Amino acid sequence: MASQGTKRSYEQMETDGERQNATEIRASVGKMIDGIGRFYIQMCTELKLSDYEGRLIQNSLTIERMVLSAFDERRNKYLEEHPSAGKDPKKTGGPIYKRVDRKWMRELVLYDKEEIRRIWRQANNGDDATAGLTHMMIWHSNLNDTTYQRTRALVRTGMDPRMCSLMQGSTLPRRSGAAGAAVKGVGTMVMELIRMIKRGINDRNFWRGENGRKTRSAYERMCNILKGKFQTAAQRAMMDQVRESRNPGNAEIEDLIFLARSALILRGSVAHKSCLPACVYGPAVASGYDFEKEGYSLVGIDPFKLLQNSQVYSLIRPNENPAHKSQLVWMACNSAAFEDLRVLSFIRGTKVSPRGKLSTRGVQIASNENMDAMESSTLELRSRYWAIRTRSGGNTNQQRASAGQISVQPAFSVQRNLPFDKPTIMAAFTGNTEGRTSDMRAEIIRMMEGAKPEEMSFQGRGVFELSDERAANPIVPSFDMSNEGSYFFGDNAEEYDN
């Protein structure tokens, strides 16, 4: 993207840094990872977990959730003011799984939030270390993106479920800051804005008074975040219109849905970061690795190297396929839920299948599930090659597409044709070009129609051997075009429920 120079890199967003050079960025990201790792080690000690239990991804998720809940100030305040039966607002906890007599047992633990905050700050040299908290939120978000298709949420806001490739980060909490905003897809931002506008339509006082002023500035800020994701002048001009509207209503909703559809071809720039579970960072720190000293990046080879040398386990339900569970977590670790499966298959070195073909449910185990038949197995999170994460949407291309997802959002900077089903997408653009945004709409449609099938995206960008740390010898991959490109292809993934 041309304006790259004016933006802070995501590592800076990730670490609240002012302008830093590459070495400083690597050190501050490393410091953040160190903090998460030290916190995780301490929690495993508190909970008396064995090494194996500490490497269980379900335990990692519970521990991450506990610290996120302990620092969720708004919710904590709300819980104190609106006490609900049987919930102690000062405590947080969740299921911890232990191996007892050759069987997995679930144990519900409860801790004072104050105590968890103390352990977290102690692991982070006394700081609140917001960057580390956001990092864990993005890992949870990436896992949700890989596990669930947001059909219901899309339909509720009037969008087409086939636009799911635009929904990265749709389950990120509001408090995820600049680093969170960077990884949100165009569809996620559109959905947040539509929800806001709908509230304004239904509630006369939404934009009024002292609160209304705050609401208005939040609305304009979200519009600017979305505008910054678009790469064409016409899309940005249309966002200006939406932002400046005196009284946002149905016309703005129409414009936003139009823009979301246009992003299936004229893709937005959305950041991709490899955020790993805390149970990967903990053992690495415990083994003596100093992330701050060595430096770390979320968008280069580092996460690949770390996963190459990590042992992570997962509980497996009786009829689940461990290899499929591994694929789910591998995609989440690489922030690749909406990437082209052919690119992923090449990088991973084994075939990556669409969601609907995987015999696996989510990673988390519900409290009512029976533990008797639970097994555990090693997650295979290694890769054959590594590639640089991208934040450009890439230019655009036609490809055989599917009944489910009709476009992709690249996660890796790797040369390819970008699949999208042009006739299906263009069919949504018939007729409606009147109104105050008509010239911009016409211009956007013209650009979409001009998108050429034979153009290559990320020209000359390749993948790298894991021994090639400096990215000196790019390998331009070859793809098996007979395979499906979309992950949520004609899909039956479970729906995400809060």
Score class of each variant (00 low, 15 high):
M1T: 06
G5S: 01
K7W: 11
E11F: 07
M13L: 03
D16Y: 05
R19W: 10
R19N: 10
T23C: 00
T23W: 08
E24K: 02
E24A: 00
R26F: 02
R26A: 01
A27G: 06
S28V: 03
V29T: 04
K31R: 02
M32F: 07
I33D: 10
G37R: 07
G37N: 10
R38E: 07
Y40M: 10
Y40G: 08
T45F: 09
L47I: 03
L47D: 10
K48V: 02
K48G: 00
R55L: 08
I57P: 02
I57H: 05
I57Y: 03
S60R: 03
L61V: 15
L61H: 00
T62E: 06
R65N: 15
L68S: 02
S69Y: 07
A70M: 04
D72H: 03
E73A: 01
E73C: 12
E73R: 01
E73Q: 15
R74G: 13
R74F: 05
R75S: 05
R75N: 08
N76W: 00
Y78Q: 04
P83Q: 00
S84K: 00
S84W: 00
A85W: 07
A85Q: 00
D88P: 05
K91G: 07
T92D: 04
G93H: 06
P95Y: 04
I96P: 02
I96C: 04
Y97M: 11
Y97F: 14
K98C: 13
R99C: 08
R99S: 06
R102F: 01
R102M: 12
K103W: 14
R106V: 13
E107N: 04
V109W: 03
D112L: 12
K113M: 13
E114A: 01
E114N: 05
E115I: 06
E115F: 08
I116H: 12
I116T: 07
I116W: 08
R117W: 14
I119Q: 15
I119C: 04
Q122E: 02
Q122T: 01
A123I: 05
N125F: 01
G126S: 02
T130K: 14
A131R: 00
A131F: 04
G132L: 08
L133W: 12
M137F: 10
I138S: 01
I138A: 06
W139P: 14
H140I: 09
H140G: 04
D145A: 14
T147K: 01
R150I: 10
T151H: 10
R152W: 11
A153F: 12
A153H: 13
A153W: 10
L154A: 04
L154I: 15
L154N: 03
L154V: 14
G158W: 07
G158N: 14
D160S: 02
M163Q: 03
S165E: 08
L166R: 05
S170A: 04
R174A: 04
S176N: 06
S176F: 12
S176V: 11
S176P: 14
A178F: 10
G180E: 10
G180T: 10
A182F: 03
K184T: 03
G185I: 10
V186P: 00
G187I: 14
G187H: 04
G187E: 14
M189K: 13
E192G: 15
E192R: 02
E192F: 10
R195P: 03
M196R: 15
R199C: 13
G200Y: 10
I201M: 01
I201S: 00
D203M: 10
R204C: 01
R204V: 12
R204I: 14
R204E: 12
R204L: 12
G209K: 11
N211P: 14
G212Q: 06
K214E: 14
K214M: 08
R216A: 02
E220Y: 11
R221C: 12
M222T: 14
C223Q: 12
C223V: 12
C223H: 12
K227E: 14
K227V: 15
K227T: 12
G228E: 02
K229S: 11
K229C: 11
Q231R: 14
A233C: 06
A233V: 08
A233G: 00
A233D: 02
A233L: 04
A234C: 02
Q235V: 04
Q235W: 11
D240L: 08
Q241W: 11
V242N: 09
E244S: 01
N247W: 05
N247M: 04
P248C: 01
P248S: 04
G249S: 10
A251C: 10
I253R: 12
E254R: 13
I257K: 12
F258E: 10
L259M: 06
L264S: 03
I265M: 03
I265N: 08
L266C: 07
L266F: 15
S269D: 10
V270Y: 10
H272F: 11
H272N: 08
S274A: 14
C275D: 10
C275H: 10
L276M: 09
V280C: 03
G282I: 12
V285M: 09
A286H: 13
G288P: 10
Y289G: 05
D290H: 03
D290P: 05
F291Q: 13
Y296V: 12
P303T: 09
L306K: 08
L307W: 08
L307M: 05
Q308N: 14
N309V: 01
S310M: 04
Q311C: 07
V312R: 14
V312Y: 07
I316H: 14
P318I: 06
P318E: 01
P318D: 05
N319W: 07
H324G: 05
K325W: 11
K325R: 13
W330F: 03
C333W: 15
N334I: 01
N334C: 05
A336S: 04
F338S: 03
L341N: 13
L344N: 08
I347T: 05
G349Q: 10
T350A: 02
K351C: 08
K351Q: 09
S353I: 14
S353G: 09
P354N: 13
P354V: 04
P354M: 10
R355F: 10
G356W: 08
R361L: 04
R361S: 08
G362Q: 11
Q364V: 06
A366V: 15
A366W: 13
N368E: 15
N368M: 00
N370T: 09
N370R: 01
A373M: 07
E375Q: 01
E380W: 10
R382P: 05
S383I: 07
S383Y: 10
R384N: 00
R384Q: 14
W386H: 08
A387I: 11
R389V: 02
R391L: 05
S392A: 00
S392M: 08
G393K: 10
G394R: 08
T396C: 02
T396W: 00
N397A: 00
Q399H: 06
R400Q: 02
A401F: 04
Q405V: 07
I406M: 07
I406C: 00
S407A: 15
V408L: 05
P410Q: 01
P410W: 08
V414N: 10
V414D: 10
Q415M: 02
R416H: 00
N417D: 08
P419D: 10
P419V: 00
D421R: 15
P423M: 06
I425Y: 05
A427V: 06
A427P: 05
T430E: 14
T430Q: 01
T430W: 04
N432L: 13
T433F: 14
E434N: 01
E434C: 00
R436F: 10
T437Q: 07
T437F: 02
S438C: 14
A442M: 02
R446W: 12
R446C: 08
M447P: 05
G450M: 01
K452M: 01
K452I: 02
P453T: 02
E455W: 12
S457F: 14
S457I: 02
F458R: 10
F458S: 08
Q459D: 09
G460C: 01
G460P: 09
G460Y: 13
R461G: 09
G462P: 02
E465M: 10
L466P: 01
D468G: 06
E469M: 10
R470S: 06
A471E: 06
A471R: 10
A471L: 05
P474V: 14
I475Q: 09
S478D: 11
S478E: 11
D480W: 02
M481C: 08
M481S: 14
S482H: 01
G485E: 08
S486C: 02
Y487D: 06
F488R: 11
F488C: 14
G490N: 11
D491M: 15
N492V: 12
E495K: 05
Y496N: 14
